[in-house]
Design a binder for these strands. Structure first.
Lengths: 216, 216
DNA sequence: CCGAATCCGCAGTGATACTG
DNA sequence: CAGTATCACTGCGGATTCGG
């Protein structure tokens, strides 16, 4: 497999050679949240051709960013998971996502929101300074998905699915439009959410996950 | 001008739509350092076809990331410069560059190093914690280029060309191979550099610009 | 000389069909 | 489920040409 190169001995150039091709960083985004199978990835990347997904997975594997594994018990097929180099990509991913979020504007016709995308938003806007020494857990519920955000001593773990234990606060929202992170924050600010648990943690949530952001 | 989209309302997806196409982020990299003209960019991006550069510049301009300006006095033609949105890309650029640098390995045959790339490396590895309250200036000299790094009260300004005033320390190096940032640090650590000025600032340089890095 | 536009051959992509 | 095969199409690389 030959890869096109940029002919420069430069970190950015090398990064673009490894993950700069079409769809690659979105595949990486989905794997940042949890290991996924081929069809899981297909589902979360509407419009990607199967042969392109197949090619990207091979390239990412060859680059040492992901690895093929046997999926756990119930399914037991192939799944794709990050190596250490893959995990190390997350700061760059979050930085790009933060910038892109400022360029988002309104949703365009036909655009969708996936749980993975919202999870990355949670991680991207998380403010460690505002969360110093904090310990709390939230569960975000929408008809289409459930997410969790668990802060332990100021350290965040966010992902798809319910919290391991009962969350300190469950936030249920059902926006008119897309279930994006923006819509969640907006609903929370306007009180258009259903709460279950320690209701005062809603303000904490907004402070920690939407502090400097005016509207994301 | 129609752009391909990813069909997702997601910051990362939008970022890739705007700056994800081939060569785009390397053009952005060069403009991060200073405004450049069409032929300056051509020179710093060996191998880019002129039509692709032309297309990218239009796309980046339409995306509101760069703008066309009249170049200053001596040349007075067109030059391309960042808008605010362009400047805001820098954190993401540095994060990607840091990750890519860990994947660099040895230079491949034919690979080059540009002053812009080294400047970005300086900014990427700069450790604000190690430089707290520091004020000092360095000039990096190599037969092929001169860079400056000026730290004022712990804040870094790094770019191509000499320091505005006489630097506190001038570091001259002439590696056998490529004049990369790695080669600079290696030469500095091994004492294979010529110093001019406050020689003790060499250790400060290494502490601030190569602290956590073992070898970059 | 600068800043492109144009043309061509080819590689990468998108869409769909098909297979172990 | 997890891909491969096929094919049309678009974008890229490389070269040349052109206007200011």
């Amino acid at each position: 497999m030959k890869r096109r190169d940029y002919g420069q001995y430069c970190g950015l150039a090398r990064a673009m050679e490894l993950v700069g091709e079409r769809w690659a960083l979105l595949i990486v985004r989905d794997l940042t949240v949890r290991p996924r199978r081929f069809t899981d990835l297909l589902e979360g990347l509407p419009g990607i051709p199967t042969n392109v997904l197949s090619t990207r997975l091979k390239e990412l594997e060859q680059a040492g960013i992901i690895e093929r594994q046997l999926a756990p018990a119930p399914q037991r097929g192939v799944q794709y998971a990050f190596t250490q180099a893959g995990h190390d990509l997350e700061p760059a991913l979050l930085a790009l996502g933060r910038w892109g979020a400022t360029q988002l504007g309104e949703p365009r016709p036909g655009e969708i929101v996936t749980p993975e995308s919202v999870t990355l938003s949670l991680r991207a806007v998380f403010d460690p300074a505002a969360a110093a020494d904090l310990t709390a857990s939230w569960e975000i519920r929408h008809p289409d998905y459930i997410l969790h955000a668990v802060v332990t001593d100021g350290h965040l773990e966010a992902g798809v699915g319910p919290t391991p234990d009962k969350p300190d606060l469950a936030i249920t929202f059902e926006p008119d439009g897309l279930p994006s992170y923006r819509a969640l924050v907006q609903a929370a600010k306007c009180g258009l959410v259903k709460l279950e648990g320690r209701r005062t943690l809603l303000q904490t949530f907004l402070r920690v996950f939407a502090s400097t952001e005016q509207d994301r």
